[in-house]
């Protein structure tokens, strides 16, 4: 417990000092503000003469924001997580730390928690911007549903984090780790509409988030339950894989 606290403190400081927290917050903020602004000024940006632009609603804006989070947020997550263990093993800093009384579990868990916190900060900043501008420029998207949907989007990013950390613990090459995580996340997203997958795949989590935002509630609780179960399992696998590595 003590070493987890020390490691977490260290990882959080790293998120701050390496500007990761700032960059993530800035990216989310940009999309949070950008999406409602874009929808509002689309008619100015694309002067419509031959065709009529549809009237956008708050729901359209929120839907677009959430899918941006799913895509851009997922890419950002992979970029942030792919080297998180791999590069430490490659550079030898992991050996320095793990030759001291720090368990592999605390080492990995601290990284997971710190990155999840950074993503949470990003998600909150982005959601706040998106909510405010949608409220002002369009209509109230419904604070409760909107917050719940964003929370679910964050869970999706945390899932992506744990998956990428698993591969980062296995490969010394961070591009291999990131690449594999990306392929799996894309496959999960593409197959999220299929039978069983629709009910239990983490890839369907963003569909549930959209449904929540639209006020229809969660359709398949199995998706949420499966994701929440998979996150600790992936971390456990990462621990198991990394424990056997030569440092």
């Amino acid at each position: 417990m003590h070493s987890l606290r020390v490691m977490l403190h260290n990882e959080l400081r790293y998120q701050l000092r390496s500007y990761r927290l700032l960059i993530v917050a800035a990216v989310f903020f940009l999309f949070g503000l950008g999406t409602p602004l874009l929808f509002n000024y689309l008619d100015v940006l694309i002067p419509a003469e031959d065709f009529v632009l549809p009237e956008f609603t708050a729901t359209d804006v929120v839907e677009e924001y959430l899918s941006t989070v799913a895509q851009v947020g997922m890419l950002a997550t992979i970029l942030l997580a792919m080297g998180i263990v791999a590069s430490e093993r490659d550079r030898g800093t992991a050996a320095m730390t793990l030759s001291k009384p720090v368990g592999v579990g605390a080492f990995i868990l601290a990284k997971f928690l710190a990155l999840s916190a950074t993503l949470a900060a990003g998600a909150i900043v982005g959601a706040a911007g998106a909510y405010l501008y949608t409220f002002v420029l369009f209509d109230d998207p419904g604070a409760g549903n909107f917050a719940a949907a964003n929370m679910l989007a964050w869970v999706y990013l945390v899932f992506a984090t744990s998956l990428t950390i698993l591969f980062s613990s296995h490969f010394k090459n961070q591009l291999a780790a990131g690449g594999l995580a990306l392929v799996i996340l894309i496959v999960l997203a593409l197959t999220s509409g299929l039978v069983v997958m629709r009910e239990f795949s983490p890839g369907a989590l963003m569909t549930e988030a959209q449904s929540l935002a639209a006020g229809a509630g969660i359709q398949n609780w199995g998706v949420v339950a499966a994701t929440l179960t998979l996150i600790p399992l992936l971390l456990l696998a990462a621990w198991h894989v990394f424990r056997k590595k030569e440092l």
């Binding site: 320095m96 030759s99 720090v102």
Partner: peptide, 19 residues
């Protein structure tokens, strides 16, 4: 990775690497 052991040793690797 035995913490019991590691709490009573010191180690300088061949190529020390830091944060």
């Amino acid at each position: 990775n035995s913490r019991h052991l590691q709490s009573r040793i010191g180690y300088l690797p061949e190529e020390p690497s830091f944060y």
